[in-house]
């Protein structure tokens, strides 16, 4: 054929033999390719290790010097070089708890509504709007919080809770209504983690086999009964996984919280009082930290936060993974 003459590299003339074709030879390309993608893949574990090691080393002097009291003491005084992160740890846990308390029922409500009740034309747009909440940068939440949420809390929300509802008698809603407070941080965090919890729960609910709810409906259960008795129990651990994933987000949120929590090293039972979180403590003091001891203490706070979020996320992933595995096992 005429084509073959156009492909000269395929045919090699050797020792006067008409055509000897080349099948020998080594290809180095594959080795380089495999090497490159393996290298990139290994970068991820290396990065995680590097982050852990860098921060741990930087925080080590603090851990060594203060030991366990670093986590339990509430004496944080950079001037006297005394560092106890208890208020920040307390604030992180409390603000995240408020966030989950507010966001979980809402997120669950949205996802059940969208996956079970809402007419089809409504599902996509509402789901999209909820997802959009996750796209708003933390600093924009903070900006909105400062100029809209705080004034609202100062008047009328906080006085209403304290005086009108009489909750001021409890230690949780007492004290002056400044605005910047644990409550403000908790509310903004609730808005921020809502899309994460909602999207995981929606996925988990959609993974519940049809037969599960149809069986209940066929027995005469109303739709709500089918959801409450058949669907939600089935999806339970996945939903808990989603909530814990939201917790992971809330624990590490920085900017919005820094802008709204008031930044005070104090443990107060009242949600109206200002507080601190680990992330906002770092954000606030890091650039002003002049002594090595102060820097090391902030690094130690960072390392504590790092460990807590890894543990929380690992639990969440495990729970979600367990549901998706059992769901796919049922489908097979």
């Amino acid at each position: 054929m005429s084509e073959s003459s156009l492909v000269p590299t395929l045919e090699v003339v050797e020792n006067g033999e008409p055509t000897v074709f080349r099948i020998h030879g080594r290809h180095v390309g594959d080795g380089i390719y495999q090497g490159a993608i393996t290298f990139f893949a290994v970068c991820i574990p290396l990065l995680v290790a590097l982050i852990a090691v860098e921060i741990a080393i930087a925080g080590w002097p603090t851990f060594r010097h203060f030991g366990l009291s670093f986590l339990t003491s509430s004496d944080w005084d950079p001037v006297k070089k005394r560092f106890g992160a208890a208020p920040a740890i307390y604030g992180t846990l409390v603000s995240s708890a408020i966030a989950l308390l507010l966001a979980t029922p809402l997120a669950l409500g949205v996802s059940v509504f969208l996956s079970e009740f809402a007419p089809h034309w409504l599902r996509q747009p509402v789901g999209f709007l909820v997802d959009l909440l996750a796209a708003i940068p933390s600093v924009v939440y903070g900006l909105w919080g400062i100029f809209v949420l705080l004034p609202l809390l100062r008047d009328p929300v906080m006085p209403f809770l304290r005086d009108t509802l009489g909750l001021g008698n409890t230690p949780f809603f007492s004290g002056p209504a400044y605005g910047p407070s644990m409550l403000a941080a908790g509310i903004i965090l609730a808005i921020m983690v809502l899309p994460y919890i909602a999207s995981v729960s929606r996925e988990v609910l959609l993974a519940v086999p049809r037969a599960q709810r149809e069986a209940a409906m066929a027995l005469g259960a109303t739709r709500w009964e089918a959801i409450w008795r058949a669907v939600l129990p089935y999806a339970k651990s996945g939903i808990i996984g989603g909530v814990i994933l939201g917790l992971g987000r809330a624990l590490g949120e920085t900017m919005a919280v820094t802008m709204l929590i008031g930044n005070r090293q104090e443990i107060s039972a009242s949600l109206f009082a200002p507080g601190y979180t680990m992330a906002s403590l770092i954000a606030n003091e890091f650039s002003e930290a002049s002594s090595d001891a102060h820097l090391s203490a902030l690094m130690a706070v960072g390392f504590t936060l790092f460990v807590i979020t890894i543990v929380v996320n690992a639990i969440a992933r495990w729970l979600v993974w367990r549901v998706s595995r059992s769901a796919s096992g049922q489908a097979a």
Binding site: L10, F21, R22, I23, H24, G25, R26, H27
Partner: peptide, 9 residues
């Protein structure tokens, strides 16, 4: 012999 070269033929 290289498998890739073989497949070209």
């Amino acid at each position: 012999v290289n498998a890739i070269a073989v497949r070209k033929h």
